[in-house]
Design a binder for these strands. Structure first.
Lengths: 201, 201
DNA sequence: GTCTATAGGCAGATAGAC
DNA sequence: GTCTATCTGCCTATAGAC
């Protein structure tokens, strides 16, 4: 545990973020201490304070990196000229990857703990959701134009619904240690967007 | 703060549970201390230990009461001879009530913190979701029989999807302090069950 | 049933040597 | 950059008086 391999050339700051990220996504921000992170890296708490002044700064750095990476992943999806449905599937796969590594979405986790977060962290969590909303809105709009996706209401409303459903599916899947639950929820979600809604009367 | 009113005849144990419940649903289990609860009731930490041996026992008592109350609320819904759609609406209203009191569903919150919970609490959280699944499955089954609800896949799968979507909608609504988001998510959910799915080709 | 007092531990954080 | 040592404060928990 924590023994640095010869080929591990990431900076200490990066390795601290890696460990902290894993721990926070798994246990929550309030259940992770400097001691936990330091132990996993065979460092002392003081060494952590050298790289990140305090827990709030560590949390902020953690969030910024996560949000940036997520945005990059979305850019990769955008780069492929595919239909809206396969973009949505790729999007859901991002969440599935997180879940399969025994983690909750960092921002989903922090949304639960939101009331206890320092203001700078709150701002970033909110921005994450807004950015996801915006990206999904564009994909949904594309789908409507293509005629591949069908939904009532605004694209933004549908985007919000997608985010909520995915976050909730992750949240509930974890206590059951059941990624199948999550996959089925994704299938239901996408199926619901592919079929034309028709009034029942 | 904490001054007991003349007409407040709940037992101290109940009042402790009330305060602890509010705090945990708002901040999370790991962010609530005996001191927080005691302060709000003008009691000492030692007095709390008299009623609940430790934090794990308090958490367990909290959960048991919550699960029992939720089951009672579902029984009330079942008592009315109404169609499945209005049962679902009443079900969603239970969550809306929680959200409007600045809270997350207790078990949704604890699902996020699941990895840090003592085993007895974990068991109850899982049971909560299973019980909800079972109850919703029956309502969905009723709706299918009535011809008022339409969905593909098993009732259990649809029930799981509903729970995930509602929990996720609460989770995300809170950072935005926006109950409208939640209401719209509920509308989308129920609308999706009322319309007949039809292939788009 | 509630209190004071206190134990023992871990939290986040800092000073200063190397 | 990392260490040892230490600080202060809060945590859960207990003993024993009232």
């Amino acid at each position: 545990m924590g023994t640095r391999s010869r080929t591990d050339e990431r900076s200490t700051a990066e390795r601290i973020l890696d460990v902290a990220e894993q721990l926070v996504q798994n246990r929550g921000y309030n259940a992770v201490s400097y001691a936990d992170v330091a132990a996993e890296l065979d460092l002392t708490k003081a060494a952590l304070h050298y790289h990140f002044a305090g827990k709030a700064e560590l949390g902020e750095a953690l969030l910024n990196r996560y949000v940036t990476r997520f945005a990059q992943a979305l850019a990769v999806i955008d780069a492929k000229p595919v239909d809206a449905t396969s973009k949505l599937t790729s999007y859901a796969d991002l969440y599935l990857d997180v879940l399969q590594r025994q983690r909750m979405c960092l921002c989903g986790m922090l949304a639960a703990e939101f009331q206890t977060l320092p203001e700078p962290m709150r701002t970033i969590v909110v921005r994450f959701f807004k950015d996801n909303e915006t990206w999904l809105s564009r994909v949904l709009s594309q789908g409507r134009t293509e005629g591949t996706l069908h939904f009532t209401g605004s694209t933004r409303e549908a985007a919000r619904f997608l985010i909520a459903a995915l976050q909730g599916a992750m949240l509930v899947a974890r206590p059951f240690e059941d990624t199948v639950r999550f996959r089925k929820a994704v299938s239901s979600l996408i199926a619901g967007l592919e079929s034309k809604p028709s009034a029942h009367l």
